[in-house]
Design a protein around this nucleic acid. Structure first.
Lengths: 219, 219
DNA sequence: TCCTAAGCGGACCGGTTGGTCAGGTTAGCG
DNA sequence: CGCTAACCTGACCAACCGGTCCGCTTAGGA
């Protein structure tokens, strides 16, 4: 509730002392890099080591591993949403949508944890959920413009776009180590797929929203 | 080397006693179900519990968790390869390829571990590698026929097909709990993408083989 | 029916994880 | 400069993992 105080044990929302601020920065940077490289499964210990702080410091700044992950993911989602919002003002909706997808993929491919979070509802806390919804919304707006222009088939939604983007990474993943640009091939395939060429409607109704966190069968 | 003997500690290749045969069956069934539902990360303890045997019994029948997983995955790969081989004799190559992809997806969607094994080279022992190669080969033969017929664009390979199939599962995954048939939508999109409509070539050269196990950055 | 080797189970081992805490350190106000 | 509250650290904890091992059980041939 109140700002500076914590709810359960410790964990202030914003540190005030200079060393704490510095450590928080180090921590966020190290965590972002480590999550990106090795996915959500990396241990807190490794992140702490990489940041050059003790493990306890991590839990002083973030109540749990999940909260640390969420803080980093949120920033990335917002970045993407900004990119999308900017592209909404572009003249030609078709290339704008494509550019949005390319920009997204460039992040997806670099950040393993980012894809995992989108694909696994169990990793999503309410804030992350909101960010994903915002991403779907901006994708929907971009898609709607392209749809009206006739560049995209009429039964493709923004949620389709987000799902496709999240899916291209695992599709290309086995090739990416040897050929870091391979994702472009499958993005192009997806773009061809969503383009209105045949008049056919897709089977199964288009998704409107991403479903809320259902209990993940795993773990 | 010799049949009935083990190499390292214990672990016969084929049990003879009736109770051992029965337990092995129970174990394989339980493991198949559990891996399918929760992925490769499930613990041996849980599989043992589900099979109604002790943990020690698992390691009597299989040298390691990896070997148990491989035994189950191998059977599924071979099943798919058989399906593909049969479809090679079909009259019309286009629908044959489609049918192969539908049959594959029906397995992929039901089995979480199966997708994970394809997508993560670090999980592949030599036998599994061979099975994946056989799958790519049969996919390549099916694709080649469709290519010659003009149903599929000229720069699509069998490895492309396998990667796309493995990628559709994570794409549709968030929807699958609520809508188990949602994968059909994205399979159709992929089929539209690989169909020869525009004369354009895809960016990035087509993959010939899946890369061998590179050190998985994770763990 | 008896005997023995194959089979079984679960306590156990070393290693990992996310998370806690007591005790030493230090920033920075007065 | 001195004091205190904020902060940092690494030992520590319980839970879990894959895998081992040894004493007990039991299948099934003689």
């Amino acid at each position: 509730m109140a700002e500076g105080r914590c709810m359960t044990g410790t964990t202030p929302t914003t540190p005030s002392r200079s060393d704490a601020v510095r450590n928080r920065r180090l921590l966020l940077d190290a965590a972002a890099k480590t999550f990106a490289e090795r996915g959500v499964e990396v241990s807190i210990g490794e992140i702490a080591r990489r940041a050059g702080v003790g493990k306890g410091t991590v839990f002083r700044h973030f109540r749990s591993k999940e909260e640390l992950l969420a803080a980093i993911m949120l920033a990335m989602f917002d970045e993407l949403v900004d990119t999308g919002t900017t592209l909404l003002t572009a003249d030609d909706p078709g290339p704008a949508l494509r550019e949005f997808m390319v920009a997204s993929m460039e992040i997806f491919v670099r950040d393993r944890a980012f894809c995992e979070v989108i694909g696994r509802p169990s990793l999503q806390n309410p804030q992350v959920r909101d960010a994903i919804d915002r991403l779907c919304d901006v994708a929907e707006e971009l898609t709607a413009r392209a749809r009206r222009q006739g560049t995209v088939r009429p039964d493709i939604t923004g949620t389709d776009i987000v799902l496709l983007l999240a899916g291209i990474q695992p599709t290309a993943a086995p090739l990416l180590i040897a050929e870091p640009q391979a994702w472009r091939r499958y993005l192009e395939l997806a773009l061809d797929g969503i383009t209105a060429t045949t008049g056919r409607t897709l089977p199964h109704p288009p998704p409107r929203h991403l479903p809320l966190a259902a209990p993940d069968p795993g773990h």
